[in-house]
Write a protein that binds this DNA or RNA. Structure first.
Lengths: 247, 247
DNA sequence: ATCTAATGGTCGGAAAGCGCACCATTTGAC
DNA sequence: GTCAAATGGTGCGCTTTCCGACCATTAGAT
């Protein structure tokens, strides 16, 4: 007695969580820093607030912060007007070093995982860009988009990754689905981890900036297909790079 | 001192988990049943296997199964060739009854939530269909797609929801991104919950079937844009229905 | 009739996570 | 100089979850 098969229960009966509360909290804070949602020197919410936002006990938040402080991502100061701050200089993320990086749960680098990541990214980001262009944006939203574009344009090599991530997240945010943003953030983290494993990227920052501009303009002028196409072409560059180096 | 703003940390500092292990396990099993991945009368994996798949202790699995048995979704039989089975007749899910449905965590029905759900669904499913049409499908995959199409066509009103869900999941599965399927499953569950709150849908089952066929054919003949367009039109029907009733 | 294998059912200790109260430190306001 | 407020730091008891071992039941094989 066989299943109709092809679509069995195993598809949904996957792990209900990607680790314990502590690990997930660490990853979430790391996302917030690496994707540039809270920049170097800026302050995170107070521990009690973080515990509330993350729906996790303060103990767990504290342990996560302790780990990230050890790793050099965060710095805590106590007292009034104290708090937990993002380090002014973030730890560089080198692949060659044989340091035990407990923060990056050794991700699989098989071709399947790479294709999975790139495909998902394209679906989410191209779809997001298309919907963003199809919506009626408020003046404030239009300014924010342009601002994040300009900031990415002016970025130095060191901070480019972070500001580029911010721009892409901003586009996703404008799609008008609150549930979409975390998904884009997740897949973006996966892409960044892949990029960490290839040497000396960044030859095409200028080209990237041009493409960013095309995307932003298509969104601001309300042309969904153009936005989708511009985003598709933009992502194709990264995809080609990753496939070339890692497959 | 204000943020650059518009894209602050709150976007990522959301709850790290949607409930405790028990609740998430219940939801996962419920998904598997409601989306038809394991049909009425069919058997679930053994408790020890489930615990392994879901990365959760057997105790938690057992508690979840106990809840779902009380609710009438599952039936357990012990002994060799025993196991946990999906009920032959699934509990109907009526909104009018004032029964405390502990299994359906009262979802918000605000316009924002509805738009969020519909937007995300369109991005995921249209993108999935487009990619499925752009891939080289194996003969086996082509057969599975057609099979799920035929099964949905032959469905009675009662089982239509389940088999329709299976068809949509199958399309997503063919996109070639393993990470995509759970996302489509999640958003599909959200759509189904919305549909549970409007009376007597299902006038357009015939029309739905026609659209399903167009989607399947576009995918099988490798026409990404046609697949995406067919899926877009198909989803527009549901979206119109939901917006009309719930907003 | 018996044995065997696979299943669900039960129990007890260890660990993780939670919630709360309280302590220690810092800084601006007065 | 003192105080108030906001923050990180610490300790404790409770609940949930985990893990492993063992028991009870069933259906087929022998």
């Amino acid at each position: 007695m066989e299943e109709p098969a092809g679509l069995n229960g195993e598809l949904l009966l996957r792990p209900v969580r990607g680790g314990n509360s502590f690990e997930e909290t660490v990853q979430r804070l790391l996302q917030t820093v690496r994707l540039g949602l809270v920049g170097p020197g800026e302050r995170l919410p107070a521990e009690r607030e973080l515990a509330g936002m993350l729906a996790v006990s303060r103990d767990t938040v504290r342990e996560a912060i302790a780990s990230l402080s050890d790793a050099g991502y965060l710095v805590s100061r106590r007292g009034r007007y104290g708090g937990t701050f993002v380090s002014e200089v973030l730890p560089t993320h080198l692949p060659g070093t044989d340091q035990e990086d407990a923060l990056a749960p050794t991700r699989n680098l098989s071709p399947e995982v790479i294709e999975d990541t790139l495909t998902l990214r394209e679906i989410l980001e191209v779809g997001g860009a298309r919907h963003a262009a199809g919506r009626a944006l408020t003046p404030s939203e239009r300014e924010l988009l342009w601002l994040s574009l300009v900031e990415a344009n002016e970025a130095t090599d060191e901070e480019y990754r972070r500001l580029d991530s911010r721009f892409h997240l901003m586009v996703g945010e404008l799609a008008g689905s609150a549930s979409l943003t975390p998904l884009i953030a997740d897949v973006r983290m996966r892409v960044n981890e892949l990029l960490d494993n290839i040497p000396s990227l960044g030859p095409n920052i200028a080209h990237s900036n041009t493409q960013h501009e095309q995307i932003a303009i298509a969104i601001l002028t309300g042309r969904p297909d153009a936005a989708a196409q511009a985003m598709t072409e933009h992502l194709a560059g990264t995809a080609l790079l990753l496939r070339g180096f890692l497959e």
